[in-house]
Simulated assay, not measured.
Amino acid sequence: MKRILVSLAAVLALSAKADSVDTLNGFLKDVKSGRASFSQTVTSPDGKKTKKSSGSFEFQRPNQFRFVYQKPFEQTIVADGQKVWIYDPDLNQASSRRIDQALGATPAALLAGGNVAKDFVLKALPADKGLDWVLATPRQAEGSIQSLKIGFKAGELAALEIVDAFGQKSLLEFAGVVPNPAIAAERFRFQLPAGADLIEQ
């Protein structure tokens, strides 16, 4: 009887693990565009320092997204499918890179990219803090991200946790997620503001 219970527990554990990866795969398959607000907490490698910011996020596959940081400092990051633009209003300065150089194994590539399996190895993790988690490990170990976790609540995208190559942790928590909204094409076009400097990389 004990052996049966242990076997049953193992089967249930495997089923639970499969579910979170299935949830992510379902999200990637069914949700072609999205909109949400987010709060971000960045924690230093020693865990002693934190920085908080907030803003909004929109995406449309493949490879179009718009991050707008509103607090405490404004910054806009836009990808139009060909390039990624970062604009800092305080400096009135923008930079751009080709999308294949800028994305790779990044959170934006995971949410808005066209081929997640090419860039990440996916593994289910135990549920934690009310969320079902998936670990996405970049296939290219020399990149800027050490690990990436995606959290779902009742099948809805709820959080991203990123640990960069230096051990700094960023937690993005999403609210008001709207799957598959109609998003105007101009939301993913960057227009250089008058007088702004442009640095192309």
Rank of each mutant, 00 (worst) to 15 (best):
M1Y: 10
K2H: 11
R3I: 13
I4S: 10
L8V: 13
L12I: 13
A16G: 15
A18E: 13
D19Q: 15
D22Q: 14
N25K: 15
G26P: 02
K32N: 12
F38E: 02
S39M: 08
T41L: 14
T43C: 06
K49D: 07
K52H: 11
S54C: 00
E58D: 10
R61G: 01
P62D: 12
Q64G: 03
Q64L: 10
T76N: 05
V78C: 02
V78I: 15
D80W: 06
K83P: 02
W85P: 07
P89L: 01
N92R: 14
N92M: 10
Q93I: 02
S96Q: 10
R98T: 13
D100L: 06
Q101A: 09
L103H: 03
G104S: 08
L111T: 05
G113E: 08
V116M: 09
A117E: 15
K118W: 07
L122T: 01
A136Q: 05
R139M: 07
A141K: 15
Q146L: 11
S147M: 08
L148P: 03
K149D: 00
F152R: 02
F152M: 03
K153D: 07
A154V: 02
E156W: 01
E161G: 01
A165H: 11
F166M: 13
G167S: 06
Q168E: 12
K169F: 01
L171A: 04
F174R: 03
F174H: 05
F174N: 03
G176T: 03
G176A: 06
V177G: 02
V178T: 15
P181S: 04
E186Q: 12
L192V: 07
A194G: 08
A194R: 12
L198I: 04
Q201Y: 09
